[in-house]
Design a protein around this nucleic acid. Structure first.
Length: 460
DNA sequence: CTTTATGATTGTCA
DNA sequence: TGACAATCATAAAG
């Protein structure tokens, strides 16, 4: 208000003194400064008006009202008013030019983006919570994992609610205030020179003020989310073990693809779905598993045998079926890896399995069973030669057969100890018989390592 | 409590 | 970018 008044007076004085070419319109001349020696009555009038305006604040409300009415009815009023409007328009423009800039605040953008990313602002993220619920429902044994997750979700929802109510409140207050000010200004524009642009500018100022408040709200919301994150999700190290079931599934896949335990993106998705974990968790799991298996194969031997035995029966059946049903067919995709412990050979179904193996070997070295075009079979052979994993020993009878097949392979595909076959790239075998950078267990052939396994792959 | 197992993160490499 | 290796931090086992 005071500022406005000052500007009006400033403008007024500028007009008054313009004719006199007096410098420095800023300084208000004393009301009686020019003594009226010019004898110009109009100037005298203006001086009076000025004086009245100057002293208006010193007067009581009634007095001021009366004076105001007097001014309003002054014969000079319409003329002065239009002049004032004109001048104000000019000054207003110049002011606006100075401060009318609205760069999209990068800070605000950042906050907005983050809130959007966290699901605080933007559309109601039904998908996320639905997924969480689905995960919770699907996870047979690992419900505790999703409990925390849902807890986090609940807290996040709370934050979002608070954020939205506050935002709404601010918006409402802003609108109310804006309309109030607009009404006030419009009302005053009858007695005071206020252009629509002036009102617009005021509205802009109000909005800016309120948006700065909003920014504070956003900032504190961001902080709250960050704290929440650090306490829940970002307490990322606060890990939970996967459910037994999930580990089972993952291990099954791992050991049945031991020669090339690199699930494709689709396979990962499949596994993730089966285990109720994320794809990246599957990737993590396989990354950890590979490295840890490689680091200490002996330690995983038991586990490997377990899972190998688990799939041995079905795999064997599959192989048997394949051989019996299509003897001359070309099993170019022998997704029929055989996995069994050598001791199993001498046990119950030793005979059939043994003959099966023999069949395979003879078939492999002869023409009727074309060499599998996959690293899995290759792995099998390597394993049979004791050239693969530490502890992957086989019975001597099989070993000899393996030697046979070794030679057969050497002749057929140019097998070379210590040489990577291009067929098994990118990640499959290297000279050591591992995937990539595997240690060299080939020399370690301690027979008392216990019954080893022959791992093959059912790479379908 | 200590040790081991394990999921996740980080930095590096091809 | 995915894989790997080292590492972290916690869960579970002893």
């Amino acid at each position: 208000m005071m500022e406005e008044q000052a500007r009006i007076m400033q403008a007024l004085s500028g007009v008054t003194l313009a004719g006199h070419s007096v410098q420095g319109g800023m300084g208000l001349p004393p009301p009686h400064g020019h003594e009226g020696t010019d004898g110009d009555g109009r100037k005298q009038d203006i001086g009076d008006i000025l004086h009245q305006i100057m002293t208006i604040t010193d007067q009581s409300l009634d007095e001021a009202q009366a004076k105001k009415h007097g001014l309003n009815c002054h014969r000079m009023k319409p003329a002065l008013f239009s002049v004032l409007c004109e001048i104000k328009e000019k000054t207003g423009l110049s002011i606006r030019g100075a401060q009318e800039q609205d760069p999209p605040d990068p800070q605000l953008m950042r906050l907005d983006n983050m809130l959007l990313a966290e699901g605080v602002s933007g559309p109601e993220k039904g998908g996320g919570s639905a997924a969480a619920t689905a995960a919770a429902a699907a996870a047979g044994g690992g419900a505790d994992n999703s409990i925390e997750h849902s807890d986090y979700r609940a807290k996040l929802t709370q934050i979002r609610q608070i954020y939205h109510t506050e935002l709404e409140k601010y918006e409402q207050a802003c609108n109310e205030f804006t309309t109030h000010v607009m009404n006030l200004l419009r009302e005053q524009s009858r007695t005071r020179p206020i252009s629509p642009k002036e009102i617009e500018r005021m509205v802009g100022i109000i909005h800016r003020k309120f948006s700065s408040i909003q920014m504070q709200l956003k900032q504190s919301t961001c902080e709250a989310v960050m704290i929440l994150r650090s306490r829940f999700l970002d307490a990322r190290r606060k890990r939970r073990n996967f459910s037994k079931q999930a580990t089972e599934i993952l291990n099954e896949y791992f050991y049945s693809h031991l020669s090339n335990p690199y699930p494709s993106e689709e396979a990962k998705e499949e596994l993730a779905k089966k285990c109720s974990i994320t794809v990246s968790q599957v990737s993590n799991w396989f990354g950890n598993k590979r490295i840890r298996y490689k680091k200490n194969i002996g330690k995983f031997q038991e586990e490997a045998n377990l899972y190998a035995a688990k799939t041995a029966v079905t795999a064997t059946h599959a192989v048997a079926a394949a051989i019996h049903n299509s003897q001359a067919n070309s099993p170019t995709t022998p997704n029929s890896g055989f996995q069994m412990k050598d001791e199993e050979f001498q046990l119950d179904s030793a005979e059939s399995k043994n003959s099966l193996l023999t069949n395979m070997f003879t078939a492999g070295s002869s023409a009727s069973f074309s060499l599998p075009n996959s690293g899995d079979m290759f792995m099998s052979m390597q394993s049979l030669n004791g050239a693969s994993y530490q502890g992957a020993q086989v019975g001597t009878n099989v070993q000899s057969q393996g030697d046979t097949i070794h030679h057969a392979i050497s002749q057929t595909v140019g097998y070379n100890d210590g040489l990577r076959h291009p067929m098994y790239s990118p990640h499959s075998l290297n000279g050591n018989g591992g995937w990539h950078g595997a240690p060299t267990p080939s020399s370690v052939t301690s027979p008392n390592e216990g019954p080893g396994s022959v791992h093959s792959d059912t790479s379908n």
